[in-house]
Design a protein around this nucleic acid. Structure first.
Lengths: 188, 188
DNA sequence: GGGGTGAAAGGACATTTGTCACTTAAAAAT
DNA sequence: ATTTTTAAGTGACAAATGTCCTTTCACCCC
């Protein structure tokens, strides 16, 4: 059974054992308890993370205390605060663990280094970034064109495993509806 | 007075006269009349476009005939159908001219070629792509957290020059509200 | 320069979704 | 096990926004 990170990269381009070992040697394991924070608003974000085990979300809180969930991450997903990580500015979104988590951390410097050393890694990043952009476009489109019901059904269909794993409150804040609305839809 | 495309690239990195002339030599001028289509749904998209003069929008139409505007473009902006252009798949969004337009077209092959030949161009693309991602995130966030009023006011504040140039119908479809709602907000 | 065409404004009403207050259920802590 | 805390379900009502329809305005175009 191959390493989950290897599987993930090889969905884009195949690696030799040496290449993968070299890549993996730049990652640092991180363990976190449920409810702990990986990133707090205002932090500098020096790493991005690959999830080995557990579940996290990134979110922001507005001045009235309402939350908006940008992203969830479970096994084999990446998570970070992209803008802060890239530009070395303070984080405007927070990241918290929804379960006990095991992560692999990669620093900004090592990411750059890997990209320079290994074209396949650079390419993997470019493909990943592009897929992220397209996915975000789709989400925006659904947000604008779809009703609460359509958004909810799409979520359940797209992420059946998340739907029973993540508190409804957070799913609601990801979909941009109230928790009560989710309840009402769920009933039917 | 420098060429608008040069100014745009040089906001990221400075070019020599030779470099810019080399870049520019890969672009083809395109002229289009108001109301004409640059891309139709289902087309293959072989070029991306830099706007010299005029105004365009990209949009999709759902099965009930309702439209959603992805993007506007005026002087010095780029426009294309990113997914179709990148993946060589049929376009799922259309692009139309809201005014008479003068554009510069760059083919996929030439784009790749320029990126390979001139690192500064590759870098310019990467920066542009990253800014696009962050902007899209901000738009999604505002869409989810903001009221119709907030979204509208943000638009007017962010693009004061577009607000009097583009039909309200299209601004409404960009903001994900009905035209009537825009009218009501504008009244006050 | 009058007739036609498309965009915007406005009112009445319907629908969706949010808010609040309360109850129930489940999970965590001691 | 019992208590305490947290999440979810529910109903009544309010607010925001959409829909439909009519009127007005502005701009083109023979």
């Amino acid at each position: 059974m191959s390493h989950p990170l290897r599987t993930h990269i090889e969905a884009v381009s195949k690696l030799t054992d040496e290449e993968f070992d070299h890549i993996l040697s730049h990652f640092t394991p991180v363990k976190l308890k449920k409810h702990s924070s990986l990133v707090r608003e205002g932090d500098l974000v020096k790493h991005e993370y690959f999830v080995l085990k557990g579940c996290l979300r990134s979110y922001i809180t507005d001045n009235t205390g309402k939350e908006f969930t940008y992203q969830f991450a479970v096994e084999t997903w990446w998570i970070s605060e992209r803008e802060a990580f890239m530009k070395h500015t303070p984080a405007s979104t927070a990241i918290e663990c929804l379960e006990d988590c095991q992560l692999l951390a990669l620093s900004y410097e090592d990411r750059e280094k890997l990209g320079r050393e290994l074209w396949k890694y650079e390419h993997y990043l470019a493909v990943k970034s592009n897929m992220g952009y397209v996915a975000l476009q789709k989400r925006l489109q659904l947000m604008i064109m779809g009703s609460a019901k359509e958004r909810f059904e799409n979520f359940v269909h797209q992420y059946p495993h998340l739907y029973n794993r993540i508190p409804k409150t957070h799913i609601a804040s990801y979909l941009g509806v109230s928790r009560e609305t989710i309840s009402r839809l769920y009933r039917k």
